[in-house]
Structures are given as C-alpha cells and as structure tokens.
Design a binder for these strands. Structure first.
Length: 211
DNA sequence: CAGTTACA
DNA sequence: CCAA
C-alpha cells in the first residue's frame, strides 16, 4: 500500500490518544502469520497462571528483548523465556517496522518497539479488563494488531469502573493507545467459534511495547 | 482483578 | 450476567 493511501486510511478515536485503524495491517497479514510461526517455533505458546492460581485463557509468547510473564509471583517482564531457559526470539524486522509505521499513523512518530507480546485466542478465550502497566516507560504507546477470528475489544478509562466503548476487531485491524489513554483499562470479550482462511480456529493479537 | 465464583 |  502506498504512503499516500495509508495517510488517507480511516482512523477512529476511541478515547483521548487511542486510535482504531481498520485494515491498517491487512496487506501484511500473511507475512505476519509467518513471523508468528517463527516466534512460536523458538518460544512456544503457553498458558500462564495468575498470582492467585487462575489461568489465562489466551495462550501467549513473546519476542524482543523481554517477554511478558505471569505466575504466582505476579506480572513482570523477563529477559529469558522460563519455558526454554533461553533468550526470547528476536523481534522480526517486519513486526518492528510495521508497528512503527502504524504508531506514526496514530500520531506517535518514532516508535521503535522493544517487546512484542503475542496472544493466541481459541474460541472461548477472553481477556478481562486490565491495564498495561508493567512498563517503566509510559511515554511510549501500545500498538496492537489483530489477525484471524473477529473479537469485540472493550476500551475503558483509567479506573476499572469507568464505562467502556467497544469496537469489533477484525483480521488486519490495528489499535494504538498512548498519551492520556496509555493506562486505560481494556480487554477482549469471549472469542466466538469460527474459521479464518489464514489462521484457522484462532485469533492472534500482537501488542508492541517499550519498557 | 490479564483471574474465578457465588448468588439474586 | 453482574457484583464482590
């Protein structure tokens, strides 16, 4: 897609500093799936536990300098994958470049992601409202890509009780939130059964962060 | 509280 | 399904 057309693409502001970019990464979807498969071949998808013994329904893996992890010690970023006891896979150049481009389209120029967290949702999986607050550097936005099955994305405010707005995230969509929305609560409703020609019975979400 | 569960 |  040309730079001209990408500058003309539709943008919807969900909240102050939070942008929904429909179709922003659609053209790169096959290459993104290949990148996901590479990451998972080094650091496989795994199901994480919460501090109190619950289990996250979305399977996760990471790439880049650190990976996001949760267990009985809580949430944190780790330099090494506790599953493989080795470094997380390098972030594929395509992911870094695409996340930077999409951040720029949302008004956050110069974004060079350090970490890519990949969430895999089978039908029935969900993600409760939460904040991305494990990053010491909150000046950078969070960039999110959606691939495969559709899901309803909930975007709230700075307190858990604040009302949420929702958008349906489809294959190829992106969301970027930063600035006044950087610590906004967000989540994903239960993914419904379905089939996607590229991803089969899965939804993939990639979130790019700087810590 | 990125969770599950009990009950109106 | 929502409140806790």
């Amino acid at each position: 897609m040309s730079d001209l057309l990408s500058t003309l693409r539709r943008r919807v502001e969900l909240a102050d500093g939070a942008w929904f970019l429909p179709g922003a990464i659609a053209e790169s979807a096959p290459d993104l799936l290949a990148a996901i498969n590479f990451v998972a071949s080094v650091s496989p998808f795994r199901t994480l536990t919460t501090r109190r013994g619950g289990r996250l329904s979305a399977a996760m893996t990471s790439c880049g300098t650190h990976g996001w992890h949760s267990d009985r010690s809580g949430y944190r970023y780790l330099e090494d994958d506790p599953l493989t006891h080795r470094a997380w896979p390098d972030m594929p150049t395509l992911l870094r470049d695409l996340a930077g481009r999409v951040a720029g389209e949302a008004g956050y120029p110069g974004f060079v992601p350090q970490i890519g967290l990949i969430n895999r949702y089978a039908p029935g999986a969900r993600m409760g409202l939460h904040q991305d607050r494990d990053e010491p550097d909150l000046s950078a936005p969070v960039v999110s890509f959606s691939l495969g099955l559709t899901a309803r994305f909930l975007f709230g405010g700075l307190e858990r009780d604040a009302p949420t707005t929702s958008v349906v995230l489809e294959h190829g969509d992106a969301v970027v939130w930063g600035g006044a929305s950087r610590l906004a609560f967000h989540g994903v409703s239960t993914v419904r059964p379905g089939h996607h020609p590229l991803t089969g019975a899965f939804r993939y979400n990639l979130t790019f962060r700087i810590i």
